[in-house]
Each structure stands twice: as C-alpha cells, then as structure tokens.
C-alpha cells in the first residue's frame, strides 16, 4: 500500500519521540492500544497551571500511519490550550495525512491518546486540589 508523502515524512523524521516524567504533576500520560491490530501508543503532555500545552512526547509501536498520526498530533497540540486540544478529531488527522480507510484506526488512536493524556492531567490536578 502506498503511503502519502506526509505519512512518509513523519515516519522517517518523527517529531517529539520520547518520554516526559510521568510523576511530574504537570505531565499527563495517555496510553492507548488498538485490539484490532495489537499496537500501542503513549502520548505525554506537559501542561502549565494555566492549561496550556507546552511540550508533547510520544512513543508508538505500530505501522507507519500510527507513528505519523502520533507525530503529527504532538506538533499540533503544542501551544494549544487543553480545551483546544480536546477538539482535535481523528478526522482532522486522517485528512491531513491522507490516510486510506483501512488506516483510519491509527488516527483514532491518536485522538484517543490526546484525550487520555488530558484526562490523566485533570485527574492529577483534581487529586492535588483535594489534598490542598
């Protein structure tokens, strides 16, 4: 199957591969998997107390489209507020990367990862506020 140029670009030069400190209260970790294929994606966001995403890192074990999808969303979310990032949908990702229908689940994984990471951050923040 032919990958689009954008997928190949992100696959060959993935942006923001790596890890952030999971125990940092300002870091939200999203970990999602696709039981349809058995691939996993971890997305971490460093979010300021004002709710702005200042850094993003990912690690994905999957096909080229899954890696490209996560690489792309790390670029997209940086500088966005949490609320703005929540509106990123898998359709935006699939359109930008020109993913074929059989690869839509890769973009779904990326959307799920953003939501899971933000969810994790919000839970951490709430736990902190309850302690204070």
């Amino acid at each position: 199957m032919a990958y689009s140029d954008k997928v190949i670009d992100h696959y060959e030069n993935p942006r923001n591969v790596g890890t952030l400190d999971k125990s940092d209260p300002n870091v939200g970790t999203g970990l999602v998997g696709a039981p349809a294929c058995g691939d996993v994606m971890r997305l971490q966001l460093k979010i300021t107390d004002e709710g702005v995403i200042e850094d993003a890192k990912f690690k994905t074990f999957g096909c080229g489209s899954a890696i490209a999808s996560s690489s792309l969303v790390t670029e997209w979310v940086k500088g966005k507020t949490v609320d703005q990032a929540m509106t990123i949908s898998n359709k935006d990702v699939a359109r930008e990367l020109a993913l074929p229908p059989v690869k839509i689940h890769c973009s779904v994984l990326a959307e799920d990862a953003i939501k899971a990471a933000i969810d994790d951050f919000k839970k951490k923040r709430q736990a902190r506020q309850e302690q204070a």
């Binding site: 970990l31 999602v32 998997g33 696709a34 039981p35 349809a36 996993v40 971890r42 690690k59 074990f61 898998n90 839509i104 689940h105 779904v108 994984l109 959307e111 799920d112 899971a116």
Partner: peptide, 20 residues
Amino acid sequence: EREDTGTQKDMPFEFLEEVL
C-alpha cells in the same frame, strides 16, 4: 475488530503499560 473511537480504551491501563 472495531476501530471507532473509544473502543480501544477498554484494556486495563496496567496491561497496556506492560505491552509498551
């Protein structure tokens, strides 16, 4: 086999961590 949003999150977090 379903690939729509949300269904993937069903596995326990600890297990996905282990897979990673």
